[in-house]
Structure formats: structure tokens, C-alpha cells
């Protein structure tokens, strides 16, 4: 464990707490893409298949359970909660995210570290996470003004993987045979997808204006 990875995990956790706060406090999920939340639940369920077979640390196991649990709770809230589900932007959240799942799975079948069930699903989860934010970014552009908590959620979610990139660089130089090409390349793509969001987020913060994404 290193400070970059720990910061990344904490930033990721903060993004989830901010999203839970928004949904719980406002009893609304307007501006949140259910499709991105479903993709993230799939990412965690397929990435942590080793949850019960490999033990690294209490921290690692607890965080896996928190990520899996929170993503399922958020999907449940947006689908089933009698009040929250009414505020879901059903007609705006129309990204065909099944294509993202299929594309990631096909790529995982082609590019993986080892042709085993667990490794293919691990690679699938890495590729899927890189593009899982797309429905959310499209929804933000369509829904025009973005409320603060939603903006902060996306900001922290995008930032966490940037910390992981620093972690991979650090591990590359400190551990002789550390090479995580799949994670690194996907992580770079994932962070790059947030580039324009970060730009508009910074502009809105500098001018102290509401976050506006160009349609």
C-alpha cells in the first residue's frame, strides 16, 4: 500500500458517500445516470470474485464489501425506492450501455493476463470501469445545469483513478517486476474521459458559477 493508492481509495469512497448523501438528503436522483450505477455494480461484482478466495488485508476485504454493497444500494434506491425513483431522468438516461458491456467482454476475451475465468472477468471489470462513466457524462450534458453534489460526485469519481496512475508509476519504480499494462492503459483512458468535465468543473469553480456543460 502506498499514499497514492490510499488517496485513490479514499477519493473513491468520498465519491460514493457524496452520491449517497445526495440521494438520501434530497430524496432525489435527478442528474444521476442509473446506467452508470448499474455498470459500476457489475464492475465491482466481476472484479472482486477473489473476495472469498484471496485475503490480502482487512482493509482490502472491507473496502471490497463497501464498494459492492454501496453500488447495489444505489441501484436499488434508483430502481425501487418509491420516492427516489420518481426523480430518475428516465427519458434522458438513454445511453445503450449494453454495448459497453459487450465491448468490454469481447476485449477481455482477447486481451487478458491469463485465460482463466477469474482473469477474464478481472480484465472485463477494468475495461468496463474505464467507460462506465459515459452514460453519466452524456446525462450531465443533456440535463444542462448540474447540482453541486452531482458535480462533486463526478469530480471525485474521476479523480480517484488519477491517484491510481500515480500509484502504478510508484509501484513500477519500487517493485522490480510490477507491470500492470491492462490497468494502466485502461486507467489512462478512464481519466482522459473526464478531461472535459474537469475543465468545465474548474471553470465553474474559478468563476464561482454553476457548473454548465455545453450541450
Amino acid at each position: 500500500m502506498n499514499i497514492f493508492r490510499f488517496s485513490g481509495d479514499m477519493t473513491h469512497l468520498i465519491s460514493i458517500l457524496v452520491l449517497l448523501l445526495k440521494i438520501y438528503a434530497t430524496k432525489s436522483c435527478s442528474g444521476i445516470s442509473l446506467k452508470t450505477q448499474e455498470l459500476y455494480a457489475l464492475v465491482f461484482l466481476t472484479r472482486y470474485l477473489n473476495l472469498f478466495t484471496e485475503f490480502f488485508s482487512v482493509y482490502n476485504t472491507v473496502m471490497k464489501l463497501v464498494f459492492i454493497g454501496s453500488s447495489l444500494v444505489i441501484v436499488w434506491y434508483m430502481r425501487m425506492h418509491r420516492v427516489v425513483k420518481l426523480s430518475y431522468d428516465k427519458e434522458l438516461d438513454t445511453f445503450r450501455h449494453y454495448f459497453l458491456v459487450v465491448a468490454s467482454f469481447v476485449l477481455a476475451l482477447l486481451v487478458h493476463e491469463k485465460f482463466t475465468f477469474q482473469e477474464i472477468f478481472w480484465a472485463f471489470s477494468i475495461y468496463l470501469e474505464a467507460i462506465a462513466i459515459l452514460p453519466q457524462l452524456v446525462l450531465l450534458q443533456r440535463s444542462g445545469n448540474v447540482d453541486n453534489l452531482t458535480g462533486q460526485y463526478v469530480f471525485f469519481l474521476g479523480s480517484y483513478r488519477a491517484f491510481y496512475i500515480l500509484n502504478w508509476i510508484y509501484r513500477y519504480f519500487t517493485e522490480n517486476h510490477f507491470a500492470r499494462l491492462i490497468s494502466c492503459i485502461s486507467g489512462l483512458v478512464q481519466t482522459a474521459l473526464y478531461a472535459d468535465f474537469f475543465y468545465y468543473y474548474f471553470i465553474s469553480w474559478k468563476n464561482n458559477k454553476k457548473l454548465q456543460l455545453p450541450a
Binding site: R5, E54, N60, W122, H177, A179
Partner: peptide, 10 residues
């Protein structure tokens, strides 16, 4: 030897 290390990252 590029043994795939077990995935210790979240």
C-alpha cells in the same frame, strides 16, 4: 518471469 501477480488492488 511475468507471472500475473494476484490482484491486490481495489
Amino acid at each position: 518471469t511475468q507471472q500475473p501477480q494476484s490482484h491486490d488492488e481495489l
